[in-house]
């Protein structure tokens, strides 16, 4: 869907009833819908928390320093994303592509960190099937990680375009929409970090 929303007809700023761009509006509606998606996942995690008879339990395996660092990485990727957009909006595709690459790399660092964390938990005996914590935790954070991965692919696509000079000022909206997605993924992690990791 993410890429699908990427190019649609009427690209040449058609006048609309509200004066607002249709693609951007579509994307905000999509994010509203995503709120319900992650809301249901988080609700399930919270409802099932503390019901496990068998471990490992969250406090036994979470590494708060490590996850804090991951959260920090994702926060910083939001900064680089917004700087990429600012550069593209100025018409500076060279800087823009650099910031896009930085964002994608930070995103990949986050996903890499998640892979490491999952492996670590796996060896400590927490599998998808071990207990409710395993099921709810891996599915919730796994879906978040999938979103980040889609975002990374999207960012590299934009990077390739920007490097070849194909995202002039007039097409800054393409980057803005990718940015909205990226920041959304970031705020979902803000919620997960607090609700899942810190409030155990």
């Amino acid at each position: 869907m993410a890429v699908a929303a990427h190019a649609v007809p009427h690209a040449a700023h058609p006048p609309t009833s509200t004066g607002l761009n249709s693609r951007k509006m579509l994307f905000w509606a999509f994010l509203g819908s995503e709120c319900m998606f992650f809301g249901s996942l988080i609700a399930t995690y919270l409802v099932y928390r503390g019901r496990d008879q068998v471990g490992p339990h969250p406090h036994e395996i979470f590494s708060i320093p490590f996850t804090s660092f991951s959260a920090f990485v994702l926060l910083m990727s939001s900064l680089t994303m917004v700087l990429a957009l600012a550069a593209i909006q100025r018409g500076d595709q060279k800087k823009g592509s650099l910031w896009l690459a930085a964002t994608a790399l930070l995103g990949m660092t986050f996903v890499g960190g998640q892979c490491y964390e999952f492996t670590e938990f796996f060896y400590k005996g927490l599998h998808l099937q071990t207990n409710l914590f395993g099921s709810t935790f891996f599915v919730l954070t796994g879906f978040h990680g999938t979103h980040v991965t889609v975002g990374v692919i999207w960012l590299w696509t934009l990077f390739t375009l920007a490097v070849r000079g194909k995202i002039p000022k007039e097409k800054a909206l393409d980057v803005e929409i990718a940015g909205l997605y990226w920041h959304f993924v970031d705020i979902v992690w803000i919620a997960i970090f607090t609700l899942v990791y810190l409030i155990q």
């Binding site: 509006m25 709120c35 319900m36 809301g39 919270l46």
Partner: peptide, 13 residues
């Protein structure tokens, strides 16, 4: 478009 669904999601949780 964003805040209303977010409130709804919070209410559901």
């Amino acid at each position: 478009l964003f805040v209303m669904p977010m409130i709804l999601a919070a209410a559901v949780i």
